[in-house]
Write a protein that binds this DNA or RNA. Sequence first.
DNA 1: CACCAGGGTGGTT
DNA 2: AACCACCATGGT
Length: 217
Amino acid sequence: MIAALFDALLEQHGPQGWWPAEDRLEIMVGAVLVQRTAWRNAALAIERLREGDALAAERLAELDTVQLEAMIKPAGFFRVKAARLTALGRFVIESGGIDALGQLPTGRLRRILLSLPGIGPETADAILGYAFDRPVFVVDAYARRLFERLESPGQLPPDVDLKAKCELAMRTAARLNELHALIVAHGQRYCAAVPDCVDCSLRLRCGYSAAAVRRSA
DNA sequence: CACCAGGGTGGTT
DNA sequence: AACCACCATGGT
């Protein structure tokens, strides 16, 4: 079921090439900046940080709050996000760098990330998957909406169950990362344009339908 | 003009 | 536990 959905989405949209970034810290920074924000705007903020030579843990930690806020302004929520980036920089330094964090087991690293200000389940899983190559599925609004439409409408499993189900079915970090990217790409192109879309299929020419996915599963 | 975008937090019921 | 307002810019 999940694997068939993945194949259909990949066939329809092609590889998405997530996460676009130079290094792992940039992925973590991007994961914070993109919260409830169009990627275009988050990317503008990242470009400014790059021009300001601020894409380093030490720089994020020491930069003046007002300057940091000014740099990331295009990403919106710039005051809260600036505080989150400062905390993130300090955290990476205190942890002994990103390589040291990469030595931690996934479950423990996840709990640590969740303890940071402004990093919730979705941001933590995005960092685990894209920055640390862990086999994790990112449950977001697009995923919930898609699976609610594919399954019987009205009974969407809790996030933890949906997450575990996808991770069991896809297995590798590469496939889980691609699945999430494909779901977002799909949602942005089709579902967002048609809020009352029932099965993401016939009317929208998405390339698959609930019935088609069940058939091939 | 309203609405939304690759969420999270703190307060209220 | 389920809601709610809030954070704020840039594109349709």
